[in-house]
Design a protein around this nucleic acid. Structure first.
Ligand SMILES: [Mn+2]
Ligand SMILES: [Mn+2]
Ligand SMILES: [Zn+2]
Ligand SMILES: [Zn+2]
Lengths: 127, 127
DNA sequence: GCCTAGCTTGGACTTTGTCTAAGTCAATAC
DNA sequence: GTATTGACTTAGACAAAGTCCAAGCTAGGC
């Protein structure tokens, strides 16, 4: 390998995925990327998102059976609170380690690596 | 409405979704249903699964970005432990109510209705 | 034995994501 | 400076999962 290139396309995807409480689908990332770089392709957005996930810079979040969401807040462990009405997503920080709530006799010999918690409810606007 | 009919198709779908630790995809339900009732259609399987979910008899579980899984163990609150190697799914019962771990200042005015926890790890066979 | 609401079916269609062949770009060698 | 060449991008084909619809079938009520 002669090296990794920071291309205009990769820069634009990284710029779109900047900020807090950002949980965009690949298509949303593509739409925003297109507005900055009109000819960027879907394939490149998917490729770049995959690279960012592999690098640990972005998390893939599968909260419903629909499109995955891409979360740049990868360096701080957190969980998600989702409005059942409008789909709004918030990052939340529960007390303690969720893995600790699973007793040994409920681990069935598994080596646990983590746990994802999705809290569901109605946001103030939807209530 | 003149009534709801217990058709052969609905009975077969219900029979396929029987037992513990059952977490089949719609296509898997269809495949097993076809072996009992060869001409049952995909559309009817999807329709019936949707009805069972609406009735609260079956849970929809979205654990990865792929196909949803249908879980007949709807009457006992539980969470899921998934092997990152082979995808095996176990029902598990953590201590306490997961919702209780989210402090008031992390609820952002939401009215919480529940929480889903996905524990990840490697099963004994995959380790 | 009809009528008709309820049900099922096959296939078209949509959404989300992957893959590939062809072409473009840019770092290095010369 | 130019050629080389591996890295990258693109459009579009393809695939998986799910939804929708028009047409036809079925069974319960009369
Ligand atoms: Mn997040
Ligand atoms: Mn289950
Ligand atoms: Zn809302
Ligand atoms: Zn395993």
């Amino acid at each position: 390998m002669r090296g990794w290139r920071l291309t205009a396309q990769r820069r634009v995807v990284a710029e779109v995925l900047d900020g807090d409480h950002v949980h965009l689908t690949a298509d949303e990332v593509h739409a925003r990327a297109v507005s900055r770089l009109p000819e960027i392709s879907r394939a490149t957005v998917y490729n770049t998102l995959g690279e960012l996930v592999t690098l640990g810079e972005v998390l893939e979040v599968a909260t419903d059976g629909r499109a995955k969401r891409y979360d740049p807040n990868a360096h701080q462990a957190h969980q998600h609170l989702i409005c059942s009405g409008c789909g709004a997503i918030r990052d939340v920080h529960p007390l303690g380690d969720p893995v600790a709530a699973l007793p040994a006799d409920q681990r069935f010999g598994f080596t646990l690596s983590g746990a994802e918690v999705t809290y569901r409810g109605l946001c103030p606007d939807c209530r």
